[in-house]
Structure formats: C-alpha cells, structure tokens
Amino acid sequence: MIPPISVETNTFRYTLDALLVRSDDLRRVAATVANAAQYVGISARLNSEPERLVLKIEIEHAAKDIAEVHADLEGVIATIEPSEWARASLVTGGPWPVTRGVSEWVVNYAPWLSVAARWVPVTMTRRIDNANAPQDFLERFARVPTGSERVRIDRFETETGPRFEVYLAGTNFAAGPDNPWWVGANTELLASGASRSMSAAESALDHAGVTGTTPIVLTGHSQGGAIALALANSGRYAVEAVFTAGTPAGLVESPANVPIVHVVHPEDPVPALGGVIRGTAGTTWIVHTEPRTTGTDAHLASNYQESLRRLDGLRDPRLMALENRLQIDGPGTAMWFRATLAGD
C-alpha cells in the first residue's frame, strides 16, 4: 500500500520532474563514488597504506548505500500509474490552450445560456434540526449531497454569531444544458471564473442567511470544489477554509490567505483537466486508491471517501491543527438545495 503524500501546491507540479532529476543525480553520484573507491584501492595497493584501505572500504560502503537509495527511488517512480504521468505532463505546462480557447468560445456563443438566467434560483428541498457539526475532512466530504440536491448548508449558532459549513456536489453527467451542474459548467468556470452552478450555490448561501461577514467553510467534490475555490476567490464571503477532492483546481484562481486542502487520486483523470493549480495557496494530498482503480472509477465520491479515511488515519499535525481550529460546539440546522429549473 502506497501511503498518502503531501506536497505544497506551488511545488506539486514539479514533483515528478524532481523525482526523475534526483534519481539521475543519485545514479551519477553512486558511479562517481564507486570510481573513487577503485582509484583509492589502486593507490593503497601501490603504497601499502592501511589508512587508504580503510578509506576504500568506507567509500565502497557509501557507494553501496547510495546505489540502494537510487534503486528504491527507481521503484517509487515505477509505481506511478500511467494516468499520473499523463497528469504530470499536463500540470507542468499549464491549462490546455485548446481547452481554454474552446471554453471561451463556448461561453461567448453557447446557445444554451439563453435557457436559464445568469442568476439561478434554488429550492430548499428539506431541512433537519439538531445536526451535529463535522469534525474533520472525512465527515465534511460525507455530507456532499448527491442526486438532484447539489448544495447542503449547515448553520450553527455560536457566541459570536452564526457559522456555516457548505458542501457542494460535482458535475451531474446525466444532466442537460438546462441544469446548472451539467458538464458544460466546467467550461464556464475555466473561461470566466464563474458559472450558473456557482450562481445557484450563491442563491443557496443567500437563502441560508450567509452574508459577507459570516464565517463559512467550503467543501466540494469535483466541480463542487472548483465552485468552492471560485467563491473563496470572489472576496464576497468570509471563507475560513476550503476542502476539495477530485477537483480540477486549475479551473479557477486559488484564493490567497485561505487554508486550502486538495485530495487527488493519481489514477483520477479529472483533476488534470484543470491544468496548473493557479496560485500558491494550499496543500495537495496525493492518495492512491486502495484497492487500485483507474479511469472514471477513481473519480467516484465513494473511492475518495475511502481515501479520506486513510488520510484521517495518518493524524497529520497540520491537517489536525486546521480541523481543530474549525471545530464548532453544539447542534445546528442542515438544509439541502437544488436548482429551480424551467417548468418547476
């Protein structure tokens, strides 16, 4: 089992390149030390100096240790899935120029934009009182809604006023252009930093009583994570943290001065579609699926749920410190929302 790996967002795009460079460096250093040991051995035999024999043995041991580290590193590189190599080739170059160009054309000329208003109303489908506050990333992600409900908002009353936890679902691949969460919303986010799905999320925030000063924590899967980043980057909300899983985070600019935690499966092709993560904020956790899955199956929320369970088991001090800072005492009110479509 490959353990989760944490990398800072601004170095994430160079991780694989660095592995290759370091591997080649180690190979060359090991060869150089081995050659040096040979030269010392020849000199020792010619001069019969015990000290040089001892030095020769020490250098040989060092060369062996370096060679073993090099072999281990080669093994790590060999375990990287082909999909991760593909993703690395994307994130080292930036968002696809073709994808960006197509996205801009779509937003400017898309015929479906006329079927729904830019401000998308929502309907609260249900409400539950006495909802417990989430304790960690795992519990937050478990609350991301499914089905026609795409937004869940938990409201908690505290001594300093209301606080909100917001959970945003990803793309509805079965939906058509009249649904704000259809697949085309991703191109809207890439081209303009906004989308009808983001507008629907803001309608839900307004309905739940979120203002520009009430603290909120945003959690999203896939497109929902991109919406969370866009909301945080808008400056219209007092965002305390953003948690994403399986998100093409490069679709939008990452906000500065906001704690961000990304979790991605190297086998999941969707995060690569965002290209380079724009901005330097946040930490990305690379978590291999267990048991190993590939393609779109690696993007499923259920597989990310299991990976977050493994990540939670690491008890990482930085992640725990953030989760502890976000703790809320006491029950709250949970609300679910779906977009109000034409004909409702």
Rank of each mutant, 00 (worst) to 15 (best):
E253Q: 15
E139S: 10
T125K: 02
W182E: 13
V264I: 15
E58I: 09
H207E: 13
A194Y: 09
D206M: 11
G279N: 07
T214L: 00
G75F: 04
A208R: 03
S199M: 01
E267K: 00
E267R: 04
L322Y: 05
P3Y: 08
V115H: 06
G330T: 04
K56M: 14
N257K: 10
G161I: 04
V98A: 14
L55I: 12
L205M: 10
L55T: 12
G170M: 04
T214P: 05
G235C: 05
R13C: 09
L190E: 06
G330R: 05
F12R: 01
P317I: 06
P331L: 02
A241I: 03
E306V: 14
W112Y: 12
T213N: 10
G250S: 08
I59S: 11
V106I: 13
V239L: 03
P271H: 06
A194V: 14
P271Y: 00
I2D: 12
R150D: 03
F156N: 07
G193S: 07
R152E: 08
A169C: 11
K64R: 13
W182C: 12
A321S: 13
V98Q: 13
A232Q: 00
S222R: 06
A256C: 05
D129E: 14
A88Y: 01
I66A: 00
H288E: 12
I227V: 15
G41V: 01
V7K: 10
R236M: 03
A301C: 00
H265V: 09
V183C: 00
L314Q: 11
A34Y: 05
R152P: 00
S114W: 11
